[in-house]
């Protein structure tokens, strides 16, 4: 077996572990109505929720060939010390072109990384920052379904993350409903389940398949 074949076999093995399919829907709710949604979620989801406050940076590998490859990096956000060296890399693939599927289905690869100089490291990879935001919110689960409710903030000055430099992006909270499944599994039954679950949050939130790739 040549080195190239060995490399491909190795990548296939790793893909079984790390490459997943994500079924996802989005919606939003005014901050004033958030409490109603939280009560609804507390009633139908698994007991308890997990609060989080994270900093997401979206990078692209810009080359002369198109399209750009986008990677998202996330870490825990603290306004006091922004020095968490633990990051999560996420590659999000192009959505499946399936007009009959009620949700967005896309390939994702997650990887946890640790670096004392992550910004220099991503520069080494040729990645350039497109945008960044801070997300603060809560995560609920209902079996395999993950419900993320968060408010987004951006910094007025890139690189400065003190409280006075942060501003809200909107008066609404972003709602994300997602399930990740094994890449080889048929996603249609899961997509239907996710759509059915989303109808339980209606009329508080109307979750939609946002076709963000259509310009």
């Amino acid at each position: 077996m040549s080195d190239e074949e060995k490399g491909d076999a190795n990548n296939e093995y790793l893909a079984q572990i790390y490459q997943r399919k994500e079924c996802i829907l989005w919606g939003s709710i005014y901050a004033t109505n958030l409490i109603d949604l939280e009560n609804r979620l507390a009633g139908i989801c698994d007991p308890g929720c997990t609060p989080f406050h994270e900093h997401e940076m979206s990078f692209s590998l810009k080359t002369t060939q198109t399209p750009d490859v986008t990677l998202r990096l996330r870490r825990k956000f603290h306004t006091e010390t922004t020095s968490s060296n633990q990051w999560r890399f996420r590659y999000v693939g192009r959505p499946e072109p399936d007009p009959n599927c009620p949700v967005v289905v896309r390939k994702v690869i997650d990887s946890v990384a640790h670096s004392q100089n992550m910004m220099e490291f991503v520069k080494t990879l040729g990645l350039r920052l497109d945008y960044e935001y801070m997300a603060k919110g809560k995560v609920w689960t209902c079996g395999a379904i993950k419900i993320v409710v968060s408010s987004l903030k951006r910094t007025k000055q890139p690189g400065k993350y003190e409280v006075e430099n942060l501003e809200k992006m909107s008066d609404s909270y972003l709602i994300e409903l997602s399930v990740t499944i094994n890449d080889s599994v048929d996603y249609h039954p899961i997509a239907k389940q996710l759509k059915a679950f989303s109808s339980q949050l209606s009329p508080l939130v109307e979750l939609q398949k946002v076709e963000y790739w259509v310009k």
């Binding site: 790793l14 572990i17 790390y18 490459q19 946890v112 990384a113 640790h114």
Partner: peptide, 19 residues
């Protein structure tokens, strides 16, 4: 510049093969 990762990074690197 240096980092330690889980093996998911091997796959992510594969996606960056245009560069």
């Amino acid at each position: 510049p240096r980092a330690s990762h889980d093996r998911g990074f091997d796959l992510i690197l594969h996606k960056l093969n245009v560069g």
